[in-house]
C-alpha cells in the first residue's frame, strides 16, 4: 500500500528537492487535519496546488494511526530510490522541469528521481551521472570530439 502511495506521489514529482518539499507539505496538511497542529510557515503556492490535485481517495488512505508510520516507510523507501544527477546549463522553472521529468520517466523508470545541478561549462544540453559514473552528453563534449574538423574549417575561413 505504501508503494502505491509513493507511486502516486512520484507520478509528477521529478526532482529530489521537489519530492522532499512536497512530502513535507503533505505531512503538514495531514497533521493539520488530524491533530490540528498549525505550523507557522504555510506551504509554498506550487505545492498547495499539487496538494489540491491529489485525488481524495489518496488522502483517505491516511488516518490518525498510520500517518507517522506511513511517512517513515516512505522515507526509508526514498533512500533506496535510483537517483540520477543531471547537470544543466540553466536553472529550469517548474514547467520545463516537469517536461524534462515526464520525458525521463517515459524513457526510463517511472520511479526515477533527478538531482538537478548547474554547470555552465556545458555549453548546451546536459550531462548525466548514474551510480557514480559521469557521462557528458552536452555540446561541449561534441565540440571536443569534433575539434579537429572544426579547427580545419576555421583555418579555411582564416585563409
Amino acid at each position: 500500500m505504501n508503494e502505491a502511495i509513493l507511486n502516486t506521489i512520484l507520478e509528477n514529482t521529478y526532482t529530489l528537492s521537489q519530492l522532499k518539499r512536497r512530502l513535507s507539505a503533505l505531512k503538514q496538511l495531514l497533521l493539520k487535519e488530524f491533530f490540528k497542529s498549525d505550523s507557522n510557515q504555510p506551504a509554498p503556492a506550487i505545492d498547495t496546488e499539487w496538494l489540491k490535485s491529489l485525488p481524495s481517495e489518496f488522502l483517505k488512505q491516511f488516518n490518525k494511526d498510520n500517518v507517522y508510520k506511513i511517512f517513515e516507510d516512505i522515507e526509508s523507501q526514498i533512500i533506496k530510490l535510483p537517483i540520477v544527477t543531471i547537470y544543466l546549463t540553466f536553472e529550469p522553472d517548474e514547467a520545463t522541469l516537469s517536461q524534462i521529468g515526464q520525458r525521463a520517466k517515459k524513457t526510463f523508470n517511472k520511479l526515477l528521481i533527478f538531482d538537478i545541478k548547474y554547470d555552465p561549462r556545458l555549453i548546451a544540453g546536459a550531462a548525466l551521472v548514474c551510480k557514480g559514473v559521469y557521462r557528458d552528453y552536452s555540446l561541449r563534449s561534441k565540440i571536443e570530439e569534433k575539434r579537429l574538423i572544426i579547427l580545419n574549417n576555421f583555418k579555411k575561413f582564416l585563409k
Binding site: 551521472v129 557514480g132 559514473v133 559521469y134 557521462r135 557528458d136 552528453y137 563534449s141 571536443e144 570530439e145
Partner: peptide, 24 residues
C-alpha cells in the same frame, strides 16, 4: 571513453577527511 568519468559526492567532511559516495 573521453566523456565518461567516475564521480563521487562528499557526504561528510571533517578537516582533511572526506567520506564520499559513488566511485563504483
Amino acid at each position: 571513453p573521453n566523456n565518461t568519468e567516475e564521480i563521487g559526492y562528499a557526504v561528510e567532511t571533517r578537516d582533511f577527511l572526506a567520506q564520499l559516495d559513488g566511485f563504483p
